[in-house]
Simulated assay, not measured.
Amino acid sequence: MGHLISAAAVVDVDVDLEPGWVEVEDGLITASGTGAPPRDPDEHHDGILAPGLIDAQINGAYGADFAVATDEEWERIVDELAATGVTAIAPTFITAPVEDLAEQLRGYRRQRARLAGRPGATRLLGAHVEGPFIAAACKGAHDESFLVDPTAERIDALLAAGGADLGYVTLAPERVGAIEAIQRLVAAGVRVSIGHSDADDVTATRAVDAGATLVTHLYNAQRGLRHRDGGVVGVALTDPRLTPGLIADLHHVDPIALQVAFASAGDRVMLVTDDLSTFGMPPGRYELGGARVVIDEGQPARRDDGTIAGAAVRLDTCIANVVRHAGVDVATAIRAASTVPAHALGAPELGTLAPGTPADLVVLDPLELRVTAAWVDGRRAG
């Protein structure tokens, strides 16, 4: 007989805030349902029981950048992040020389194997390489001197280095060779995200036709919606084949733009943090992909020129922000940080409370929507 957890409300793939329960045994959900549990629960929560949260774009945390993190820093991140309800992540490695990115991917493969099954710790999904195949006009905080076209040789170098641990690549489809690169990546089982791009809607749609399925931080560092050119934003909001990531920290995207995103793309929107090493740290100077950034109290990180460079926000805060400031219903907001990224990243066994799936769970306070408890593989985080 497994460990039975009940809650005043449950959010699942097709469940919107109904009383319910799950039973957990040997790291898996063995049974789940709505209404009264089949027996007295081993523990009951007055909050919202939901699948574990998944962050599809995060550069680091707790003072460490994934590109240069030590073994001890990786351990601290996966241990402490799980307690915030983020039970799985796709670590992001930003623009750098291709040979450096290849080395970072090789290092990540070692970390992912080493940390697999760490009790109660955030699980590591396929890595996200953001650049260097992006547009100079939309580089954001990326180093322009490292930007290059996605030649077959460069793509093959990343594929060889990342292997099955490379999850997705962000690129600008207007770069020379980008459409062929998308096809090459997709054929190798790697997802492609449109981002840091000044592409018009025709070019963005060509990228989707070639196999791109994601959009990196919707609105930010990409051509916006114009009345005679939908741009990347227009395609992201209207093409059902795309999952747009959205940084809902209220700095990167205005509340009205959040409303537009959910009103247009609905259950396709994926909440991400784009957190840096600054997450969980006091104001000060930190590193992003080798560049120095500064964070002031209550503000996102910025480079010395004032450019926003990632965030320092909890994923459950993003959920609360779209509920409070964009009028999104609670169940949709929670799924945007759990079920949607699970499917977008090719991990449909996550983001659900279905029997037979990993017991990655969270409980959120029903008023504040802040995570109060979390489990990874049925083991309590924190």
Results as ranks from 00 to 15, higher is better:
Val260Pro: 13
Met281Asn: 02
Ala291Phe: 09
Val313Glu: 02
Thr278Asn: 06
Val330Met: 03
Asp305His: 05
Leu276His: 09
Asp329Glu: 13
Arg285Ser: 09
Ala331Gly: 01
Arg324Pro: 10
Arg302Ile: 08
Thr332His: 07
Ala261Ile: 12
Arg268Asp: 10
Thr307Ala: 03
Val313Phe: 00
Arg285His: 11
Arg314Ser: 08
Val293Gly: 06
Ile295Gly: 01
Gly298Leu: 10
Pro283Glu: 02
Val293Pro: 00
Leu276Asn: 07
Ala291Arg: 12
Thr278Trp: 00
Gln259Arg: 08
Gly310His: 01
His325Val: 04
Gln259Ile: 03
Gly298Glu: 00
Pro283Arg: 08
Ile319Met: 01
Thr332Pro: 15
Val294His: 14
Thr307Met: 03
Val260Gln: 03
Ala309His: 00
Phe262Pro: 04
Ile334Ala: 10
Leu315Ala: 10
Ile308Lys: 10
Ser264Glu: 06
Gly280Asn: 08
Thr307Tyr: 10
Ala291Asp: 07
Gly310Asn: 09
Ala320Arg: 06
Tyr286Gln: 04
Ile319Val: 12
Asp274Lys: 02
Asn321Ser: 12
Ala326Ile: 07
Cys318Gly: 06
Gln299Pro: 14
Asp304Tyr: 08
Leu276Asp: 04
Glu297Asn: 13
Gly327Val: 12
Arg314Tyr: 12
Phe262Arg: 03
Thr278Pro: 00
Val330Glu: 04
Arg302Gly: 02
Ile295Glu: 14
Val260Met: 07
Ile308Gly: 10
Met281Glu: 05
Met270Trp: 02
Asp304Thr: 13
Gly290Asp: 10
Val269Gly: 13
Ala301Thr: 11
Val323Gln: 09
Leu271Met: 05
Phe279Tyr: 15
Gly310Trp: 01
Gly306Glu: 05
Ala326Cys: 01
Gly284Ala: 11
Pro300Trp: 15
Asp316Leu: 04
Gly306Arg: 11
Cys318Lys: 00
Asp296Met: 06
Ala291His: 13
Tyr286Trp: 15
Met281Ala: 11
Ala326Gly: 05
Ala312Gly: 01
Gly284Glu: 05
Tyr286Lys: 08
Leu258Phe: 01
Gly310Thr: 03
Gly310Phe: 00
Ala312Gln: 03
Ala320Thr: 10
Thr273Ile: 08
Arg303Gln: 13
Pro283Asn: 06
Tyr286Glu: 01
Gly290Asn: 03
Ala320Glu: 12
Asp275Ala: 15
Arg303Tyr: 14
Ser264Asp: 06
Gly327His: 00
Gly289Ser: 13
Arg314Glu: 14
Asp305Ser: 12
Arg302Asn: 02
Thr307Gly: 07
Asp305Met: 04
Ala326Pro: 04
Thr278Gln: 03
Phe279Arg: 11
Ile295Val: 15
Ala311Glu: 01
Cys318Glu: 05
Phe262Leu: 11
Ala326Asp: 12
Asp316Gly: 09
Asp267Ala: 14
Gly289Trp: 01
Ala311Asp: 08
Asp267Tyr: 15
Val294Ala: 15
Phe279Cys: 02
Gly289Pro: 09
Pro283Phe: 07
Glu297Lys: 09
Ala301Gly: 15
Ala261Thr: 11
Asp274Arg: 02
Asp329Tyr: 00
Ile295Lys: 13
Ala326Phe: 05
Ala326Val: 02
Ile295Asp: 04
Gln259Glu: 14
Ala326Ser: 05
Asp296Ile: 03
Ala291Thr: 08
Pro300Ala: 14
Ala311Phe: 03
Val328Gln: 08
Pro283Lys: 01
Ala333Cys: 06
Thr332Trp: 13
Ser264Val: 01
